[in-house]
Design a protein around this nucleic acid. Structure first.
Lengths: 122, 122
DNA sequence: TGTGGTATGTAGATAGTCTACGTACAGGTA
DNA sequence: TACCTGTACGTAGACTATCTACATACCACA
């Protein structure tokens, strides 16, 4: 009874806002279908980042609407049909933007977590 | 008319979930009132992290409800009254938890952004 | 026939953030 | 006096992204 509430305390395996960047990054390695993207993210992060389907597919549709990724159906002989996504030119630009934003934000946060000397890093 | 929608595209200066950690970290340096916490976060991050009052005070109340910080009013002779927050024992534990979670998540994300060799870093 | 894995998808709940507003007090200035 | 700015605390509503849970469909296997 109380567990339903407590579950939400340790929720959010994925930092909000980073999922789009991760999807763009994985697709930058080459076209893939959605389910494969989520498996790559999971395995490459050592099971730490788990993308639920309720986050994955809305994110893919979101990115497609914005023109950063493009998709086409592919009927497979084995198993269900696949929707193959690939990064567009505009998506590659967006990936650069999001990566630099990520670098800036993490640097800012690290600066608060670990202050002290910041004279130079040479 | 359209600007209202576009504003939200470049929103979220603060990564969701990190604000609590940042507040706990700042209060770990010593007791402060809310407005001072937000100023420290802004200046120490080089103006990158901006905490809006609509995020700050709900976050402080949230942390107080969970017992991680404690507060008391302090009437000041100059200006408005102050609500001074300090980290509790349980808050110090929570800071450790959140910092290690942050380290784990960033490491996982970096692993996807920059794959390749991960034999050693010596 | 049923179960588990693959694959795509939606509906609803939840939470956190941002924008915008409101209150209050002090100091400067026109 | 009236106004503005900066400090300080706070709330209401809009918005978005996430998670949980469910649904569909196909295939392999027991």
């Amino acid at each position: 009874m109380t567990s339903a509430k407590e579950k939400y305390q340790s929720r959010t395996e994925i930092l909000q806002g980073t999922l789009d960047m991760l999807i763009l990054q994985v697709l930058h390695w080459g076209p893939r279908h959605g389910y494969a993207v989520s498996k790559v993210i999971r395995t490459d992060s050592g099971q730490i980042l788990k993308v639920d389907t309720g986050s994955l597919y809305p994110a893919l549709h979101r990115l497609e609407r914005k023109g950063w990724i493009a998709a086409e159906w592919k009927a497979s002989e084995f198993g269900p049909r696949l929707r193959i996504y690939r990064l567009t030119k505009s998506g590659r630009k967006q990936l650069v933007v999001e990566r630099s934003r990520w670098a800036q934000l993490t640097e800012a946060i690290e600066g608060i977590l670990n202050p002290a000397k910041q004279e130079s890093e040479s």
